[in-house]
Design a protein around this nucleic acid. Sequence first.
DNA 1: GTCAAACTAGACACTATTGTCTAAAACGTC
DNA 2: GACGTTTTAGACAATAGTGTCTAGTTTGAC
Lengths: 222, 222
Amino acid sequence: MGHTQRGQCAKRISILDAAAQVFCREGFSGASIDEIAVEACVSRQTIYNHYREKETLFTAVVEDVMDRANAMLFSILSTFPDKSDHLEDDLTAFAVRLTKNCLCNQDGKFLRKLVQSEGERYPHLFETWRQHGPGKIGTALGALFARLSHKGVLRIDDFDLAARQFLALVNADLQMITLFGGTPTDEQLESAARNAVQTFIRAYAGPASEAAPRTPALAVVS
Amino acid sequence: MGHTQRGQCAKRISILDAAAQVFCREGFSGASIDEIAVEACVSRQTIYNHYREKETLFTAVVEDVMDRANAMLFSILSTFPDKSDHLEDDLTAFAVRLTKNCLCNQDGKFLRKLVQSEGERYPHLFETWRQHGPGKIGTALGALFARLSHKGVLRIDDFDLAARQFLALVNADLQMITLFGGTPTDEQLESAARNAVQTFIRAYAGPASEAAPRTPALAVVS
DNA sequence: GTCAAACTAGACACTATTGTCTAAAACGTC
DNA sequence: GACGTTTTAGACAATAGTGTCTAGTTTGAC
């Protein structure tokens, strides 16, 4: 048993990579092993050697993409602006990083599409993703917003809610583009992020919810 | 040629209905004509009589759902609060109507899922939908927000942007639920709508954007 | 160079699906 | 009840895909 790790590993990666693309393009039923084999420059039998059957390959691909996506996600989360004198610019830059590297990249597209189309068929597979991915991002972002709130930079009651709304706002301008598999340009990313951050800051800046519950009359500039 | 409209029409509806469910559940490739026939309580040949082939049936189903969804959408849009002394409550109720009858119902689920999974394969089919559906809802909602803004109830610069953000905020709390095909409860709908409306009003209420212009250049649209 | 492991190419049985065809049955109208 | 239309059930060929098997080839470590 010589440790031919490099060769095997290269094939594995090649297979996973090709399978991800084909599954994403055609869905689970529409993807054929032959197609994946051709795209991976590998014989069909090799695929069956590594992964017993189509479903095994599929779950392996999903787990692989999930791991990469989560790693990237928390890597980006760690760049959340901790101290900043230009909150709008820093939050915008953060939002751009987040969208570009997590939400709009290859893996993000794959997960959005596959969760949507095959999520109901593989509940446990995607539920772990939901917990470790979008579930965690909410609370993690929430914790980061909590820091900003405690510093008085923002005035936030419900941190998790604010995090969800932040993400939703960032997606507001991108959804139409990303819906058909399109990739937004850098300008679109920038614009979407800035629009989102401006609205977010307007909603959560200034001393609110102290005297007056939530009705208007809030001075904006600090 | 007796006008047996009722019988034929009933079959057509039955087929379209069953096909929508099966296509939604299994995707285009995964759905089999036999399955649809069984679900529609109809022989397979009848399907081939009405729709020449699988693809014809699929486009017919999509167009059918699109029409229903658009009709419902504009029906709900017409209930946008025109005059209101309780803006938050009225906007919340509107958001609940919108989510319940358009975004989270059977047709909304179908369109979200199928646009995502088959959108790239049928560009023209879903592009018309994009223009007549979500494309129009943005501008239509934008026009309604413009009215509120001109009355001084809200202070909005970019109406279409505000509309997109309103929709995004409403979805913020629902995405996690609706992602796996789940249907939110009335309480969840209410809560999501209220959270969204409160944040939206906080961002767009009060005299803003006159003393401190937040950014010179926005409104980037390609 | 040897050797074992991995890879390849192709044939193979099996199943599922599409779309066609036919003859019988059901339906609705007159 | 007769008639035309629609529906049905089933057989049917054609195609495509899965997963297995085998025999031959490459690869990499020693």
